[in-house]
Amino acid sequence: MITIGLLHTTIRGDEKLIIEAAKKRNIKIKLIDVREEILNRKTYQCDFEVALERCVSTVKGNHATRFFESIGVKVINNSSVSAICEDKFVTSLILQKTHVPTPDFAMVFNADQAQQAIKQLGGFPVVIKPPFGSWGRLLAKVNDIDALETILEHKDVLGSPHQKSFYLQKYIKKPGRDIRSFVINGVTICAIYRDSPHWITNTARGGVATNCPVTKELSNISKKASDAVGGGILSMDVFETADGLQINEINHTTEFKNSEKPTGVSISGAIVDCCIKVAKNL
């Protein structure tokens, strides 16, 4: 019988759906709260070959992934994919390098460079994001030089080292929504629109999920982006622009509990099936 190690911190509705999907398939899930583990290679007793990394804490999830990989466990998503997707700047670099349409961006470390970079990006407004982070936290749409100076000074004085790296992205005017596609090893299994009158459309910030048809264009760009970062279980945040679709960000421990109902697709089931396939191919 296949056992999947589910690496977690808190258990959200998403993990509950995964546990249920595994039960339906008669697959054993071993819950591993990584906060309670001693990750010591010399002493760790491991009784599973495949692990699904679902930690809400990116830092703990990364350490756990690297640990389990080091003792021969196949972790989904692997540490290479996570290292790219956890960092918005690295994701953008890879997407641009592999010719996947994505908004223009730049990284700077001080206010003077920021002003020059914004000219290169076509002027205000721009979006400033922490390279690390999620759920739309600390995103700023910067409309003018006064706001830019204020935000950068606050980050410089109050922020952690990560907050002092200024990731700037060209602001994309959206039609009141963006798209999230759910992609497993390059195949888009479903997608949602995230509608919101606010420019931040995350469902964690009140964006409303409705079904989005998986068009050929969406499927193609999602596959390209998935291939660019190394595949696995991913979700893509996609902008609709006058020039076609663009990939904004890629999530490597995607949340999906609000997306199964509108799409009618068992994303949790597809995740478990992916783990089973990996386990059978070991």
């Binding site: 936290r137 421990t253 995607t254």
Partner: peptide
């Protein structure tokens, strides 16, 4: 626990 800086997807 309160949401921490590295929490998310």
């Amino acid at each position: 626990p309160k949401v921490e800086e590295d929490w998310g997807e």
